[in-house]
Nucleic acid binder design. Sequence first.
RNA 1: AGGCUGGUAGCUCAGGGGUAGAGCACUACCUUGACACGGUAGGGGUCAGCGGUUCAAAUCCGCUCCAGCCUACCA
Length: 921
Amino acid sequence: MDIPKTYEPKDVEGRWYPFWESHHFFAPETQTDPNAPVFTMVIPPPNVTGSLHMGHALNHTIQDVMARWHRMLGERVLWLPGTDHAGIATQMMVEKQLAQEGISRRDLGREKFLERVWQWKEQYGGAILSQMRILGESVDWSRERFTMDEGLSNAVKEVFVRLFDDGLIYRGEYLVNWSPGLQTAISDLEVEMKQVKGRLWHIAYPIRNADGSLPEAASLAEAYAAANEGERKSGLLHTETGDFLVVATTRPETMLGDTAVAMNPEDERYRALAGRTVVLPLVGRELPLIQDEIVEKEFGTGFVKVTPAHDPNDFAMGKRHNLPFISVIGKDAKITAAAPEKYRGLDRFEARKAVVADLEAAGLLVRIEDYTHNVGHCQRSGVVVEPLLSTQWFVRMKPLAEPALEAVRAGRTIFVPENFTKIYYNWLENIEDWCISRQLWWGHRIPAWYTPDGDIVVARDEAEARERLRATGKDASVALRQDEDVLDTWFSSQLWPFSTLGWPEQTEDLKNHYPTDVLVTAQDIIFFWVARMIMMGLKFMGEVPFRVVYINGLVLDPEGQKMSKTKGNVIDPLVVFDKYGTDAVRYSLAAATSAGLSFALQEEKMVSARNFVNKIWNAARFVLLNCGEVLDAQQPVEWESELAEPMLADRWILSRLNRTTQEVNEALQNYRFHEVAAKLYHFFWDDFCDWYIELSKPFVASPEITPENTAVRQRIVYVLERSLRLLHPLMPFITEELWQRLPHRGETICLADFPRFDAAQLDERAEREMNTLIEVVTKLRNIRATFNIAPSVPLQAEIATTDASLSEVITRMEEPIKRLARVAEIKVVNALSAQRGSARAVMPGAEIAVPLSGLIDFDKERARLSNTLTKLTGELGGLEKRLSNPDFIARAAADVVEQSRERAAELQDQIARLKAMIEAL
RNA sequence: AGGCUGGUAGCUCAGGGGUAGAGCACUACCUUGACACGGUAGGGGUCAGCGGUUCAAAUCCGCUCCAGCCUACCA
C-alpha cells in the first residue's frame, strides 16, 4: 500500500463531494425511520451575485457541523440551500454590463432588461453554489430554492395581499430615504451613517417688527460684533432697525424649503417672541415661529430652521404643526422649481455653495463653525441619502412587532449568545414603518393595479384584481396598469423559512420541517432578516420560524480589521482552501469561533490546523501500514476480543475516548464549537498519538501475527475509526477518505453513527494508573534532558515507594516505561539506595533516582531541585494558610476541605523528600 | 448620548469562585521505520486599575481607564 507521508488535500477532497451528492446522502429521506427526530435548518440565502467569502465560510461551516452531527445521530436532517435575487445588487451588475455595450436599461425596456437579468443569473448566478460544494456543505440540493422562483413569488404575492387586506400595508406620501445614486427609495436599514467633517452655518433670519417693517441686514454685522458671547449663543440679535434670530444648520441649501422656525416651548430666552414671524432670506417667505419639544435648548442657538420636506425631524414637526411641505430638492438631487429661479437645476452641493455665498453677500451669515456629524449614505451606492417626499408602499410594523417580542420573551426562540435578545428587543420596541417599494425592475413587482380613475386594487394577479373591482361594484373591464415598482429584497427573504417549504401550499415538507430548529447567521442582519422572519412566521404560520438563533462572529483580517474590498485585506476562502486544505480551514474556523464574538483569521491558525490534519493522516498511515490482518478481515472491529484481555493502555484510551465523546457531544449541544475542536485535538494528538500509539508500537509494529498483537491492532483500529467519526463534522473529507480504508459498516461516514457517551466505558483506575506511568516517564525524560544525555545512552533507574499499589503498577508497566524513557533497568524499592552522584526527582508517593556517576553537575542538580521545591513550598504555603483559617474549615464545601488536606499532605511528603535529596547532594 | 463586547504568557485566544491553560513564537536536545506539517524536555503571567461581596475573586458586583462594534432625531 502506498500512502504519502504528507496529506495532500487536493488528491482527496475532489473525490468525495460528487460521491455524496450523487448518492443523495444529504436528503432527509435518507433516514427512513419514521420515528426519527427531525432536524431542519435553512441557509441564509447568499446573493446570487455573490461569491463565497470568509463570512460565508464560517457561517456555512458551523451549519455543516451541526447538520452532519445531527445526521450521524440518526436524525432526519434537512439543510435547505438557495440564493437571494438581491434586487439592487443584481440589477446594478447587469446595468454595468449593459453600460459596457453602451446602452441603459431604459433603452432595452423593462421586459428585455429582465430577460437579460435572468440570462445573467443562469450564467453567473451559480458561482457560490459550486463553492459551497468545495466547502463540503451537506445541503439537500434537491430542495434548492431561489427567492424569485415561482413558488416563492406566489408566497410573496400571498403575503402582500393578506397584509394589505389586514390593513398592515399602506401606500402614501411620506419622507423616505432617497438614493440619488440608485434612483430609488431605500429603507432605514439600508442607510449607513458615516461621520463626516462638515460645517455648522449660523444664519440670521430677520424677525418682522410689530409695525410690519423688517430689520435691515446692514446693521447686523455691527450688532454681532458688539454682542457678547452669551448674546451670540442666545441667537437673538438686536439692531437699531429690529431683531434677528439665528439658526444653525449643516445643510444651508435646504433653507430654500423652510416653512417655519422652531424653538423649545420651555426656552425662557425667547418666550417674548411667541406669535412673531420671520422672513426667510433669499426666498422672502414669511415663516411662523413654532414651539416644539424636539428642539434642544442647549444645541446651537436654540432655534431650528424647519424644512419638512427634507428632514425626518422637520417632517414630523411639519405634520404636528400643519406646515406646508415644499420639496426644493428633486429625485435627481437638483433644486426644483419650488425654489427661487436662481437656484433651480443646481445640484444640491452646488446649491449649498450658492446659498452660502448669497447669504454671505447679504450679510446674514454670522458665523461658520467646523462641525463633525453623522450623515446618511446609501449602503449600496455610497451617495449621500436625500430625505424627500415621495409616494411609496409601507408595512405597518408595530402590530407585527408585538407578537414577535412576546414570542422571544416567552423563550419560544432563543438567541445564542443570549445578549443578542436585548438588541432584538430594543429594535422591535422602537420600530418604525418599513418602506418596501423600490424603484427598480429586478424583483417582485408590487401586486397592485391602478384604474384610469386612480383607484388602487391589490390582488394576487390581474384577474383577481378585476374580480375585486367587480366585487366593489366598479367597472371591471377598464384598462389596468400594474404598479411599476418592485419590493425590497428583504420582503421575500423574510418568508424564507416557510416559502422554501412550499407555503402557501400545505405541503408535506412544510408539515415536517416547520418550524426549523436553528438559524445560524451574522449579527448584522438581525434587523434586516431575523426579526422580520419571526414576525412573518408568527403572522402566517402561527409559530416562530426557528427555535434557536445562533449568531456567529465576524471574521476579521489578521490585524483584527474588518475585511473589505476597499481596504484590500480580504482573504478569499478558496485561496486558503487551496493552500491549507478545506478540512484545515473548516477546523480553524470552528476552533476560533465563540458565539457572537469576532475573531482575526491568522495564517498561523490555519497552519496549525493543517498540521493537525496531517497528524491524523499519519496516525492513520501508521495503522494502515501495520494492521494488515485486521484491515483485511473487513469486519467492523469490536472492542471486546477473545484474543486477549485489554491492557492498561487499552482500558485507558477507551476511557479517554469516552470522556471525549461525552465532552464533544455536550459541546455540540451547546454550540461551543471551539471546545469541540480543542477536545478532539488534545484527545487525538496527546492521548491517542503520543501515548496510545507509542505504547502499542511493540505489538502493532511487530511483523508477527500473534493473538495478542492482533488484539492490540484491533483496538487501535477501533479507536481510530471512532475518532474519525467524532472528527467528521469538522473535517468531512479526510475522515471519509480514511474511514473508507478502514473496516466499516455502511456506505459513507456521513451516515455512520456518531459515538455516544457510555458511562460503563469510563475507567478511573486505568486513568489513575496511566497518570502514574506518564509521570514516571516524564520525570525520567526530564532528567535525561537536564543532563544532556544522548537518547542512545540507556539509563538505570531506581524508584522508591512504600505504596503497594504504586509499586505494583510500576512493576507491571516496567517494559513500557523502560522503552519510552529509554531506561535499561528499573529497580522498584522501598527506599532509595542509589549513590550520591544520582539525579533525583519526586512525584506523589514515590521518588526516583538515576545514577549518573561523573555526569552530574551538582550545582545544576541542586538548582533544579530547589526550583521544584520553591514551587511546591509556595503552593503548600497557600494551602496551609487556608487550612489554618477556621472560617474555611467551617464554611467551605467538605470536599474542597478534604481535597486541600490531601494535597497539603502530598506536598509535605514531596517537600520532605526534596529537602532530603538536596541535603544529600 | 445610550447599549453591547473585550482587556489573561512575546502574539492570537480558551477558561471562569479553591493562587492559571492552548496554539504559534522562544530555548535545549533528537533525522528513534507513522508524521520535521514530527518527537522530548523547558523558560515565560500581580489574569487592565481601584473598591466591594465571600472562608476564598483572574472568575461575581460596582466604578475608572483603554479598544472595538451597534443603536440614536442633536439641526
